[in-house]
Amino acid sequence: MPATAVVDIRHLSCALGGRSVLRDISLRVEEGETVVLLGRSGSGKTTLLKVVNGLATPSAGEVWFEGRPAEGWDPIQLRRRMGYVIQDAGLFPHWTVADNVGLVPRLESWPPQKVAERVEFLLNAVGLAPAEFGARYPRQLSGGQKQRVGIARALAADPPLLLLDEPFAALDPITRFELQRQFLALRRTVRKAALFVTHDVREALMMATRVALLRDGALDLVLTPAEFLAARTAEAKAFLASLEENWRPDEQPPRI
């Protein structure tokens, strides 16, 4: 019997608005692991994170946390044990950056001094100078800055599970690479479990301990990055082909 998984998704299906969006998904994420959910737009990546968070209800199957079924948890407690980086950030417009980042620690009644220290530490960690950004409102940030606030907010209460929905999508390549490296470093120092959504193969291979390829709401395969490079399913080959497409500016653009 392997160690208890942080999340254990068992034969999970989910229907939204009468459409079957997820079909018979089984996936375990253990401590220290980053399972990357890779898939095309509309393949069900966000929906899977929502089911894990309890924002969407499965139509079949179940999700277990730390050895207990989700139904056995108080949903509020459960959600505070997972840091969720929402696609497009989902920041609270009436709160400053510092208030957004400090939310879960405040909900957990940390002393204000400790919350302030934590916020400052995290803003520095995601490359936003606290003195410059702490007092700003979300509307005063660029898309990439909002995303980084969302990442800091998810990490705030040091949750054992991270749900990251395209956390680096709106970043310039330099900042993205910087944050990707910081994330890998973080994984070495604190052993968190992470479900990381992306549609970028390169990012998937870099971040993953395992890649879970979603196709039309079903798992196509779950492999380590090294195995994934040799994967033979049509969907995996389609993604790998996008890696080899290396257009250089001295070439003619591909004909359409």
Binding site: L55, I76, G90
Partner: peptide, 21 residues
């Protein structure tokens, strides 16, 4: 709706969502 959903996802109670958001 996205802000409300985000409040739920962060683990706010219904009362907290009402009063804080």
């Amino acid at each position: 709706a996205a802000v409300r959903e985000s409040a739920v996802a962060m683990g706010m109670t219904r009362r907290q969502i009402l009063w804080l958001v």
